[in-house]
């Protein structure tokens, strides 16, 4: 059956079982890489994307529930040549080891920073409560999110990157 999904501003018609978790459609049908399979249980945050601006675990949300919703993945924020603040900050602070969990971290952070570009340390930790990192990159992740908030605050609101 065909399901219409709006991902990164484009409507895609996807031929898949409506019970399929969003993650599999993003990765297999749309060939997007950023959202990762980590647990399939909503426990680790590697699959995090935004749905209507809210951080959402794509491994447990069936596509059936997502018609008419705005789905945003890391790919839409910026590119290597024109990175978004959250991406620039992670590069600047070298906030990755293996990097597998990092896109999910960045999407949790993006949801927070879009609401509040100057969060407290506690607010950042709360926003990352679902996200697990096994390499122990946590200190750099926290620092990169603070740095991204500074960069987003410094941008004029009119220039603020959508996403």
């Amino acid at each position: 059956m065909t399901v219409k999904l709006k991902v990164n501003g484009t409507v895609h018609e996807v031929d898949a079982d409506p019970a399929t978790p969003l993650l599999y459609v993003l990765r297999e049908d749309l060939e997007l890489n950023a959202a990762k399979y980590g647990c399939g249980l909503g426990q680790c945050g590697s699959c995090m994307v935004l749905v209507d601006g809210e951080a959402t675990l794509s491994c447990v949300v069936p596509i059936l529930a997502l018609a008419e919703r705005e789905i945003t993945t890391l790919e839409s924020l910026g590119t290597q040549d024109d990175p978004a603040p959250i991406q620039s900050a992670f590069i600047e602070l070298q906030a990755a080891q293996c990097g597998y969990c990092i896109p999910g971290m960045m999407m949790s952070a993006q949801a927070l920073l879009q609401r509040n570009a100057a969060p407290s340390d506690q607010e950042i930790r709360d926003a990352l409560r679902t996200n697990l990192c096994r390499c122990g990159t946590h200190m750099r992740i926290l620092a990169a999110i603070r740095r991204a908030g500074e960069m987003m605050s410094a941008q004029a609101p009119a220039n603020r990157r959508a996403g």
Binding site: K36, L74, G78, Q80, P83, Q87, I91, Q94
Partner: peptide
């Protein structure tokens, strides 16, 4: 700078 980080933070195939 690590050569792999820009790709990993922008959704390039990395794994």
């Amino acid at each position: 700078p690590r050569v792999d980080i820009p790709g990993k933070v922008t959704g390039a195939p990395a794994y």
